[in-house]
Each structure stands twice: as C-alpha cells, then as structure tokens.
Design a protein around this nucleic acid. Sequence first.
RNA 1: CGGGGCGUAGCGCAGCCUGGUUAGCGCGCCUGCCUUGGGAGCAGGAGGCCGUAGGUUCGAAUCCUACCGCCCCGACCA
Length: 570
Amino acid sequence: MRYSKTLIPTLKETPAEAEVISHRLMLRAGFIRKLTAGVYSYLPLGLAAIRKVENIVREEMNRAGAQELLMPMVQPADLWVETGRYKKYGPELLRFHDRHNRESCLGPTHEEVITDIARKELHSYRDLPINLYQIQTKFRDEIRPRFGLMRGREFVMKDAYSFDVSDEAASLSYQKMYDAYKRIFTRCGLEFRAVQADSGSIGGSFSHEFMVLAKTGEDTIVICKNCEFAANMEKAAVVVAPKERVEPMAELEKIETPGKRKVEAVCEFLGIEASKLVKTMVFKADGVPVAVLVRGDRDVEEVKLKNLLGAADVELADDKEVFDATGVPTGYLGPVGIKIKVVADQEVASMENFYVGANEKNFHLKNVNLDRDCTIEAIGDLRQITTADPCPECGGQLATTEGIEVGHVFKLGTGYSESMNATFQDQHGKEKHFVMGCYGVGVTRVVAAAIEQNHDENGIIFPIPLAPFSVVVLNLGVNDKVITDAAEKLYGDLQKAGIEVLLDDRDERPGFKFKDADLLGIPFRVNVGKGFVKSGQVEVKNRKTGDVEEMTPESLVTVLKKRISSALSS
RNA sequence: CGGGGCGUAGCGCAGCCUGGUUAGCGCGCCUGCCUUGGGAGCAGGAGGCCGUAGGUUCGAAUCCUACCGCCCCGACCA
C-alpha cells in the first residue's frame, strides 16, 4: 500500500485519555479511534494487525480439527433463562427489547447458542467429538472499561466449544485446544505462560489461562523456579506442612489493648509477631456476612473464599456493615463467641495459643485455640500464596510476575447440556448429555498485549507475524527521479516476492518519515535516498535491534524474503 | 455503583479563582516560498453552539444548579 493513499492518522502528541502504553501507541499510530467508552473503531492498520492474529488463530484451530461457524450477536433472553444465566450474569449482559417487546441481549459469550445448535443438530455419538468456533465481536458491558483494547466493552474474540461423549474424551479435546493455544501464542511471537486458573462465572471444573508476560498485566501469576508449575495468583494452592502440636493449650485470657485496631499496632503493643495473631475479616457472601480467619500477616484471596462458600459474589464488608452484623467495631473482631458464621484458613487450624480480637472494644484474647474455643463452619485454603510458600507441586521456590490474559480454556462438563437438555444417543441407544469444553482467545487483546510487550520510546515494535506490514520502504527523495524510480521498483519487487510492504511516498522530510515508521512498528524499514544515488545500495534498518545494513535492492528482496518467511514459520 | 479528576479549534493545553465588549497559545490543517537523513524555517490563511439545559447579572467560557460525556482508583473478564 501507498502511505499517501492510506488512512494512517498518526499523532505527535498523546491524547489525554490514554494511560497504558499500548493504548497510547495505538492511538498515536493511528490504529484505533474511540467512539464511546470501551468501544473503538479499528482503522486500516489496526485492523490489519487484528487480521494477522485472526488468521493465525484460524489456521491453528483448523489444524486442531475445529470447524468455523458464525453465531448471532443478538440473542433471545429465553436461552439465557434456560441456563439460569439471565439472572446470574448481571449487568454486564446488555439487555434490550425489540419492537415486539421481546427480551433480548447482546452476546458476551455463546455457550447458550452453541448448546442450542448442538441439541438440535447433534444426535448421535457418531457426530462426536466436534469442536465449533467463531471469530466474532463480543459485547460485555464492563463496569469499567479501560486501557483501550485491553479491556474494551466491545472486542473481537475467538470462542470455541467442544462436545464429547465422555469426560475422558472431553479431556482429549481440552488437551488439543491447550496445545493449539500454545502454538497460537508462539506463532504470534509472544512471551507467554499457560497457568492454572479459576474457572470464574463461565463455570466448569478445570481451566488454564494463557498469559502474555508484561508489566502492565492485570493478573499476577505464580511460577515455580524448579518445575513447570504456573498458576494465577487467585488459584495457586497454598500447601501447609502438617504440624504437630508443641505447646500445651494455655488458658484463655482477656487483655486490654486500648485503641489498637490494626494488626501492626496490636502486635507492637503486645510485643508479638503478626504470625501469632489471627485477623477476623468480615465478607458479604451474596449479601450474607461471614467471618474469615487468616493469620495476621496473610491476605484473604477472595476467589478462594468464593469457591469455598459456593457464593456467586463476595465482597469485603465496610465498618458499618461489620458493626451491624456483629455488634463489634472493626479492629476488635474475633471468632470466639461471634454472632456470624466463621470460616478459617487452613493455616489457622495449626496455630497454637494465638491472639484474636475479643469482640469487645479495646480488648483482645490471648491463648486462643481453634478447636477448643471456636465454632468453625469450614476450613480451607483461603489466603493468597506468597513467594515464601513452597511450590504446591514440587516444593520448589516460587516467583511472581504480571501477565495479561489473552486466552482461557475451560472444561465445562455437562452443566450447560443438562440445563438445556442437550443430549445424544450413545452406542447402546442411551440418552446422554454432551460433555462440553469452551476455549477463548481475546483477539483484540492479543494485539494490545503484543504492544505492551514489544515497544520502546519511539513506538511499537511488532513481532513479524503480527505486523500490519513486514516492510516499509521510505522514498527519501520524492522529487528525485533516480530515488523515486528505485523506491517504486523496490516496492513492486517486494510485492511480487509476496511481502507485505508499505511505500512511504509522501512528500515529507526524511526525519518525519523515520518517526512515523518507528511509531508504526513495522519490522523492517528500507531507506531509499541519497546513498542509493551514490552507491546503488539501499539501507535496511531492523526496528527491533536497530541494526542497519546496506545492500543492493536485488539482494534486499532475497534477504528480507528469507528472514520474513523464517519468522512466520516458527 | 462508591471515591477522585476533567469537558475551551482535529490533538495537547492556557484563560475561570478576582464576570467586561475581537477567547488565546503550541501542534496539526490549507496557500505560497524555501528546505530535504531523525517530527525544519518564513509569510499568509481557514477553523470555536467555551459539553447540554436552566439560573444569577446590565453583561457569563468565567458565578450557581441540574443533567450528559470522558478519564483515573476499587469490585468483573478474552
């Protein structure tokens, strides 16, 4: 394409709305423009990058034996009522009425629609296994859209759904997708990790997330320095070594702690370590207050709490709610004689003669022992893992890093097929529910994540497989016939060689073109200028390494063709 | 939804506190000259319901009220 004929509205200054680097650069490079909160138009170059991701995803899905289809974005509420998600999904599901006043919604995901297709069109075990996918625009009315394409309300997603005869067969389908995803992100040229994950509101039993490693990631992931273990922080299991009781149970004692509310203050006042204290946090689980016990120096992991309680939603109660529920001001709460349900982190169960709030202002209790003094509803892994904890799989040392979730694979089981009564007949003529899996890739987010991971102060540095163009040819002498002829010929020759090339044929000064080329992040920049008139050679600059080489246009075509195709075939 | 901030030319901002007649600056855009290896220079020019509605006032971008929109921090997720 010719730059002069292409809409690439680059910006010298960064629009005030953009906070994270990918958002800023996509705006500045003229890739996207915002229409309204969380909703963007994709301009030609932005779309080109999105198409690159789509094509890689499509090829790998097809290679894995999945079939592409396309489902509607507008869906009838009835379907969502069947699975119970019309209620459960909450305000993120954009609902509206059509002219006949029928309830409808914009699809944030397509389990309902695909399951409807399955129950209507798949009847026999002979039809299975099958994996159907689409690449489509989704709409989720996010509470707070932000970071440009990283968390938009409207975004492009690849979603795939597998149907199997049994759990074992479903595991195979899952594994195939897991492998396909590894190939996808490897081919995209991204540094990523597959991690164990919580399955969230989509439901299901088993799940992995694919995380692009980047400082701006919204998720924290935990990886083992010793083995292959990697998990989302919110999922990573804490393993506590079983501990023998060493101290005899001491007598319960009430001690005065005037005005000492925070863990730190209490510990300092009493001259104890935070690990001898148990804090009592009150959460609202689907609106019902529950007290949660963790060691003083630990943090509650809300996702784990949610799972233990089987709640759809948990939220830390504020001071007033705590007082209303317990009659105790925050800071002096404790499990002994508290009015509400109590759950405890497993670690607390092995603590001896510890300290807690006395459920009375300005008092704490000493020498508390869980089994003797408290009534506990449930004990489980409720706290956030730390790098001081052992790897749950090999006991090795853990490290944390930030990641951007770009893909997620779930084993769904029969939840949807049961609620929607989607069945097939097995070999023995018996009706069975499909065992399902679902698999998502955030296509637009992949582009954002790629930029988060690959940029410098001058702009984007696209991995070759995702770049809108592989090469940009700069005509640095549009008024010079020799230079212009050479640039035009090179442009044509590169195209003939099957290379995607942008020709900067604008009547601009060289520095201006360099800046734009860097900003756009095109992997190879070819300068055709005065040097060519003198020596017959052009310059190639590698956007990533900054390396500059000189060669004749003829050898350039050969060299670039080789480099690009090797990058694409990795 | 809770907390914080912002809406003035295509973009980035000043002006507002302390109302006053032609609303400014930089970038970008248009014309011409000049220039041509890291976002040049000179000259001329176009472009603004000052977010919307109401109120106060002789007079409102400026003060007051409501609404709308956007951004940032928390709960959600590809």
